[in-house]
């Protein structure tokens, strides 16, 4: 076991991926000498060379578009988009090109491209550095969308994503980069939780909290703080495909459910969860599925972000409301 921050665990996972397959490439802005603005790719260019860890021109569409071309030539590029709010210049290449190319070729083409995106708020950044754009991508058939919440998942899920023959959007909770945990870097992949499987991270009886990425920790804190009730917390880990069976099993037991994410609630991923849970758990629900998340405003200036982001109190307030129904 090694104690690693989430960022360092990402780094170790990327290193393993580069070691295991000479076709794996890392590319993006400042991923080389600098090691990325969060140092996630620290030291990789030194050890694997400029041909495999590529400092690209400053052009997101260009980065993803050329990654597609590299994949067509047999490479497995891991692309870094520097911040969540910078992914939109690459939207056409991701949504229209990368996601659809396999179907357009009737299965002849595989696009094993991983797009890493540091996501979410909470670090006091300027605008466009704190967003949660996951729903744009879960709404796009052809993509797989996953997100890690802790160092162990960071280490394992990035390696599993690189092995996927389908394109994967990989969200990294940037305010959790410095969270530490014990990671077994010698563990065998066969012992890892499958990439698209949700995990109950805190068992409970009275209500289910659904979260992913940065919100998992907040939900765990809420569960610990709730003295009167026993709250179950599920880390979804994968948004597309969604492990709905784990969710349904839990909600059928507890009868109450609160979804938590940083993205705006309206039309957010929680809406999909609420609809599916209603369909599958209708007769077991004691109250409607409630959602806690960002407001329907652009992400506010950082001095307001503590008001915008779902915190422990807003989560417990929603739990209270499911009981008051």
């Amino acid at each position: 076991m090694t104690t690693l921050t989430l960022g360092k665990a990402m780094n170790e996972g990327l290193r393993k991926a580069l070691e295991n397959d000479p076709k794996v490439l890392v590319m993006g802005e400042d991923v080389g000498k600098l090691g990325g603005v969060f140092r996630v790719t620290d030291g990789l260019q030194k050890d694997f060379g400029e041909e495999r860890v590529i400092d690209t021109p400053l052009a997101e569409s260009g980065i993803v578009g050329t990654a597609i071309g590299l994949a067509l030539r047999g490479y497995r590029p891991i692309v870094e988009i520097q911040f969540d709010g910078f992914v939109f210049p690459a939207a056409d290449q991701i949504i229209t090109q990368l996601a659809k190319m396999r179907m357009r070729s009737l299965g002849a083409l595989s696009l094993p491209v991983v797009i890493r995106i540091p996501c979410g708020g909470g670090i006091g950044a300027v605008e466009h550095h704190s967003e949660s754009p996951e729903a744009y991508f879960t709404h796009t058939p052809g993509l797989r969308v996953v997100t890690c919440s802790n160092p162990v998942d960071a280490y394992t899920m990035i390696q599993q994503s690189v092995l996927s023959p389908d394109p994967v959007i990989f969200f990294e909770p940037k305010r959790r980069y410095w969270d530490k945990a014990e990671v077994d870097v010698e563990s065998a992949p066969s012992d890892w939780t499958p990439l698209h499987q949700a995990r109950i991270v805190h068992p409970g009886e009275h209500a289910t909290l659904l979260a992913y990425g940065p919100s998992v920790k907040t939900c765990l804190e809420a569960a610990a703080a709730d003295e009167g009730r026993s709250l179950e917390v599920i880390d979804l880990r994968s948004l597309s495909p969604l492990d709905i069976d784990t969710v349904v099993e839990s909600v059928n037991r507890t009868g109450r459910c609160v979804v938590v994410h940083e993205a705006p609630v309206f039309n957010g991923f929680g809406a999909e969860l609420a609809a599916r849970i209603t369909e599958r758990c209708f007769y077991r629900l004691e109250s409607p599925v409630l959602r806690v998340g960002g407001f329907s405003t652009p992400y506010p200036p950082s001095r307001n972000e503590d008001d915008y982001l779902p915190d422990l109190d807003r989560i417990l307030d929603a739990v209270d409301r499911t009981f008051a129904w």
Binding site: E51, R52, S61, V64, T66, G69, L70, R73, Q93
Partner: peptide
Amino acid sequence: TLHATGYAMGVQRD
């Protein structure tokens, strides 16, 4: 044109 450029970058790496 970006796919073509990436493909050509792959040829270089070969």
